[in-house]
Design a binder for these strands. Sequence first.
DNA 1: GAGCCTATTATACGCTTGAATAATTTCTTA
DNA 2: TAAGAAATTATTCAAGCGTATAATAGGCTC
Lengths: 212, 212
Amino acid sequence: MARRTFHRAPEAERRHDLIEATLDCIAEYGLQGATVRQIAIKAGVTAGLIRHYFQSKEHILQEAYRIVIARLTEKAERVTGDPETRLRDFIVINLTEPVANSRSLSLWASFISRVSVDPELAAIHREGYLSFRNALEGLLGDFLAARGEDASPERCRRLAIAINGLLDGLWLEGCLAGELFGESELVEIALTSIETLLGLRLRPVDATGADH
Amino acid sequence: MARRTFHRAPEAERRHDLIEATLDCIAEYGLQGATVRQIAIKAGVTAGLIRHYFQSKEHILQEAYRIVIARLTEKAERVTGDPETRLRDFIVINLTEPVANSRSLSLWASFISRVSVDPELAAIHREGYLSFRNALEGLLGDFLAARGEDASPERCRRLAIAINGLLDGLWLEGCLAGELFGESELVEIALTSIETLLGLRLRPVDATGADH
DNA sequence: GAGCCTATTATACGCTTGAATAATTTCTTA
DNA sequence: TAAGAAATTATTCAAGCGTATAATAGGCTC
């Protein structure tokens, strides 16, 4: 009875592949469909290997959630340039691919639904949320200061909460029913709404592509 | 071997109890914890009875989702009074108990995570979402018209999308981390943000309680 | 190219799952 | 109060679950 052939992968690579397979399963079949066996099939290995790399199924899910949060936030937190550019890019990034798509939402919702059940997931979530909102608060403070407007912590906090909510909500709408909106309708709505909330206009986007 | 005694309940009541038990299970243990047996225990019956009332587990979940959406939207859609009161109440209702709490979020997220897996759930979701946004669009139109402002469909649509997003996002923040905010901080932020977006002030709330 | 380490496969175990069916008990109605 | 309908319980089943352990083979080192 011929055993299947295989190749030994470096630990980091194999762990990465297993987590990726986990995310694929969740996105495709939901958390219930992310069984050890299904994940193994997706990753092209046998089920036992998962236990060789992860202490339990809980652990691979926690690792997977960390990756999901990182992907949802890392791009937006790496914006560069002057305060206005950084703020605008932050907004746009959060409402366009690859952050905004139905797969992201499926993954996010799957884990969020377990936040109240698994304290470890709750901790991972809280950390990601606060870091995201702090990043936004920083961007707002810099932008307001650069424009010579009131940038008191009080005001920045309230604006960050509101704008964070707005972005979250629009992200949600776009992910859940993107086809109900025009090409970049949500981005435009977000930009003009945030301009209104800040009481300031952003420069029109540079359409020459010079900043890419 | 004495069988357990039982009482025959009217169909509507029994179905209601079973769905309620289902929601309890989901909120408490997540979708994975909502097994036929666990639901039966919660409802104080045996597992077989569930299949007597619901064709399959999928079906009871779909019914349960309908109830969840109804509870999230029915209160807000029943606001009465003049346009301004209706709009304000709509905002407040969506950001306070019982619409905004961690149980609601757990339930909502659990089902949302399956929307991309189960087409029937997707249909239920879309219907609820559109009806909610249309209700908001109507309220905005009435309010703007009453104030003699531009209430064109174009403008109402964009405002409804933005404000719907804002409400969704703040609801989410409040449900997920209510303790990070002051007593009615989110409601206040929502009200002032929406005032800013509309370019209009709402009357200060009647604190005499006369409208209760 | 022989030998060893361990990543990987293979197999097995005990439980839980959703579902199907059979056996009973409740309650209505005549 | 007897009978019948059907709501409910009890039991069973096959499939799938996470986990544990034993067997194997890939690939490095010497």
